[in-house]
């Protein structure tokens, strides 16, 4: 059951979106979010919807896959929409006690729901098309200038990539410990919530002990391979901006400009 967990799901592929430099994609997401928050009328949202659809078509990610990512968030979307529904001012279309629905309220509710969905889908498109390792790499380079402010960017990126590396190892280990405990009569999926929480304790303690032992051994192994912090490190794989990254950047600037223009329509 634990095998199903994937962090920041990644669908390998070889489309132009997959091949873009991770830095470009991160900046694209930033621009996309800004443009999304600039939208305030139907044209603005139509533009962003168009952008998302084009992007997912280029990445060959099926709309169904994209929408399935929204499932856990349905409640938040509906909740936000309902709250906004009652916040409109103007002529009420329907009124009961202090609750009233106005034409503006409906508009707000629809736009808010759309905004959240576009935001989530846009973010998912990034993680769907970029491997966690590339993301870490991209973040490290983008945040590079923060090194001057003594932010340990390389160390943070190293920690993130080690965490990613050990997720499958620790999942495997958890499975093993669970089987061992089950063989001795432990039960993890029956009983009241409090009982289940208690049953987790004999699982977590050995897992923690082993994680600390692993950390200790890994640190020694890293020292043996001459790791001494981020200073003076080089990288085998260099990130290089290509023509497609430039084109993507120009497209984003155009989208941002259109988003601003469409506000005035």
């Amino acid at each position: 059951m634990l095998k199903d967990i994937t962090l920041g799901q990644y669908f390998p592929g070889n489309t132009v979106v997959h091949r873009l430099d991770p830095r470009t994609k991160l900046l694209w997401l930033l621009g996309y979010i800004v443009a999304l928050f600039l939208a305030k009328n139907i044209w603005g949202y139509a533009l962003m919807l168009g952008v998302l659809i084009t992007e997912s078509a280029l990445a060959k990610i099926k709309p169904k896959t994209l929408l399935s990512g929204l499932k856990p968030l349905i409640f938040i979307v509906i909740f936000t929409a309902v709250v906004n529904l009652f916040y409109g001012t103007g002529e009420p279309l329907w009124q009961w006690w202090i609750l009233k629905i106005t034409a503006e309220g409906i508009r707000k509710a629809v736009f808010m729901a759309l905004r959240i969905m576009l935001l989530v889908c846009g973010t998912f498109l990034l993680t769907y098309t970029t491997s966690p390792l590339q993301l870490t790499d991209g973040l490290e380079r983008l945040l590079g200038p923060l090194k001057k402010l003594r932010v340990p960017v390389q160390e943070l990126a190293m920690m993130m990539s080690i965490a990613l590396r050990f997720i499958p190892t620790l999942i495997e280990e958890t499975d093993k410990i669970m089987s061992a405990q089950k063989a001795r009569g432990a039960s993890f999926d029956t009983g009241k919530l409090s009982e289940r929480a208690k049953a987790l304790l004999p699982l977590l303690v050995p897992l923690f002990v082993s994680a600390f032992r692993r950390a200790d051994e890994l640190a020694t192994a890293m020292e043996c391979r001459c790791y001494s912090g981020g200073e003076g490190r080089t990288r085998m794989k260099q990130l290089v901006y290509r023509r497609r990254d430039l084109v993507t950047g120009i497209v984003m600037v155009l989208i941002l400009a259109s988003a601003i223009v469409l506000r005035t329509v």
Binding site: P132, L133, I162, R165, E217, R225, C226, Y227, M236, K237
Partner: peptide
Amino acid sequence: NQIVASVVEDDVAFAPEN
């Protein structure tokens, strides 16, 4: 407990990178 990276070649590159 001595493999650092999530891809074989990236792990082998670790020491020379350092």
